[in-house]
Amino acid sequence: MANLFNTELRAQQEWSWQLALDLFLGGLGGGLFLLYQTIDLPPVFALVSIGLVIAGAVVLLTELGHPLRAWRAIFKARSSWISRGVLLVSVFVVTACIHIAPTITNSSWRIWGGDDMGAKVISVAAALSALGITLYPGFVISASRSIPFWDTPMLPAIFFTQSMMGGCGILLLASAFDGGQGMPQAASLTIATIFLNLAMIAGYLLLMRRTGAPARESVRLLLQTRLRGLFWLGAVGAGMVLPLVLLSVQSAVGTATVAGALLLSGGLLFRYCMLKAGVYLPLPLAGIDLSKLNRTTDQLAREYSGWTARR
């Protein structure tokens, strides 16, 4: 409580594990669905992605102070990224379900034939909303101008690449169940996304080090002080570097499964660290020269002449 009364830089306390888990599950689902659409995966992956997105939404609901009022969050899509996120998740769940329904049920249940225009529209809508789900967490947090560490258009891109990396992690985990058939393809995709992630995070942190005191403090929290263990060992070491090494040196199914699990845990830790490293702009008293505040009684009397009497 005492630090509310001083002007030290303060990290946000409001968004924590639950939001990190929501962003993680949602991103994972969106990324996996995009992979399903682009590299011709079995429909079970689409089902898993829908389940992940729904699980993320449920986690978010439990974090809200009043979850039963959450329906109200659909009305402000013109200005609020949270509202847009709610709409994206809703559209995704509906369109993705309709999209995969024909492939997992018998033909008499089909709504559209394979070449039908409607099916294409639904498929595109599902893919676009999945893309939106991977991007919107970055927009939600970069909309906060009060936290300079988040105030950059790089964040949506980073959250997108993190989501794709998470999707790859699921593919690797799944290779344990299909005897490793899809593993080589998943492994090379994973290695590429890990490199991309590492490069983007490094660029982002370098940029933030030069962006002013609050952002520098955020970087310090991540790399050198409170969050350094979680960030270096968890998000970077176990979450990216170790899977990279494992996938590069050995191509066994067991290794891929371990690498997949590590990728997923690293993705969750990364989101948590990003949230907890959000340092607010300094309060107005900081950095303002107030050394000329002292003045004489005469000056005061002149400034307030007439006013004190009326009061």
Binding site: R69, R72, A73, F75, K76, S80, W81, I82, V86
Partner: peptide, 8 residues
């Protein structure tokens, strides 16, 4: 105000 998803 604009970030509020419910208009509260």
């Amino acid at each position: 105000v604009p970030v509020c998803p419910t208009g509260a």
